[in-house]
Design a protein around this nucleic acid. Structure first.
Lengths: 122, 122
DNA sequence: CTAATTGTTATACCAATAATATAACAATTA
DNA sequence: TAATTGTTATATTATTGGTATAACAATTAG
C-alpha cells in the first residue's frame, strides 16, 4: 500500500487516509478478503499516531468497507446495498453539482469527468 | 431565500449555508447581479450568529461566487474559469467515485445520478 | 445633517474535533 | 512464553466552529 499524506492539507489525516483506502480498493490494489496493515504498522509507516489510523479504520468499518477479524485484522469486506449506496451518493453529489452549475459546468462535462476518473481508477 | 439549517447535523452550519446558496444560484432562485441578505439580517432570520453567516459569505467570495459592494452588499457574481472549475471538480469527485466503485456503482449509475440531480435543480 | 444600516475587523469565550502520547487489556500468533 | 493483534481509556495540545460584544468607516434613508 502506497499511502501519501499531505500534512499541510486542511483535510484531516484520517480523511485523507480513508480516501486513499477507497482508491486502493477501487483500483484493486487491495482486494476483497485481503487484510490491511495493522494500525500500529501503518501508523508507523506513514508517521502518524496509531489512533489516527484507528479512526480511519473505524469509520471504514462503520460505513461497510471493512470487517475486523481478531485473527486477520482489518479485512476488506464491502457491504453492498445498491439502494442505500445510490441514495447516499446522491446526497454527496448534490451540493457539488450545484456548485458546478454555478460555474457553468454542463451535465456533459460532468459525465466526461466521471468517465475520466473511472478510467484513471482502472 | 428559503434557508433551512439542521442544527443536529454534523455538517458545519456555514457549510450547510454555503451549499444552500450554491443551490439557490444553481436553481436561479437568486440571479447574477442580485444581492443576498445582509449578514445580520440572514443571521437573524435563521437564528445563528452574524459571524457564521459572514464566514459562509467570505468563503463564497474567496471561491468566486460573490462580490461584495459597499453599496449593494453581497452580490452574486460568479467568476467563470472552465479549466480551473473542471480541475477542482475532478479533485472533489475522485474520492467520491472511488467510494462508489467500492460499493459497486457503475459509471452509468453515476451518470444517471448526474442527470437526476441536474433535473432536480432545474 | 442625523440616525440607521452596511461590511468588516478585533477580541474573547466555550465546545467539539483532530491528533498525539501512554498505557493497559484480552485474544491471538510465532 | 513472548510478541503482536484490535480495542479501550485517559490526558494533553492545537485547531475549528460558533457565539457574544464591540467598534470602525462607508453608505443610505429620513
Amino acid at each position: 500500500m502506497y499511502i501519501d499524506i499531505d500534512f499541510n492539507s486542511d483535510e484531516a489525516i484520517y480523511i485523507q487516509l480513508r480516501n486513499q483506502i477507497f482508491m486502493a480498493i477501487a483500483t484493486s490494489q487491495i482486494r476483497e478478503g485481503e487484510s490491511l496493515p495493522s494500525v500500529r504498522a501503518l501508523a508507523d509507516d506513514i508517521g502518524v499516531n496509531m489512533h489516527t489510523v484507528n479512526k480511519a479504520y473505524t469509520t471504514l468499518r462503520q460505513d461497510g468497507f471493512l470487517k475486523v477479524d481478531r485473527r486477520r485484522g482489518a479485512v476488506v469486506a464491502v457491504d453492498v446495498n445498491k439502494a442505500v449506496s445510490l441514495a447516499k451518493m446522491r446526497d454527496y453529489l448534490r451540493p457539488l453539482i450545484a456548485r458546478g452549475i454555478c460555474k457553468g459546468l454542463s451535465r456533459e462535462e460532468f459525465k466526461k469527468l466521471i468517465d475520466e476518473i473511472y478510467d484513471e481508477l482502472q
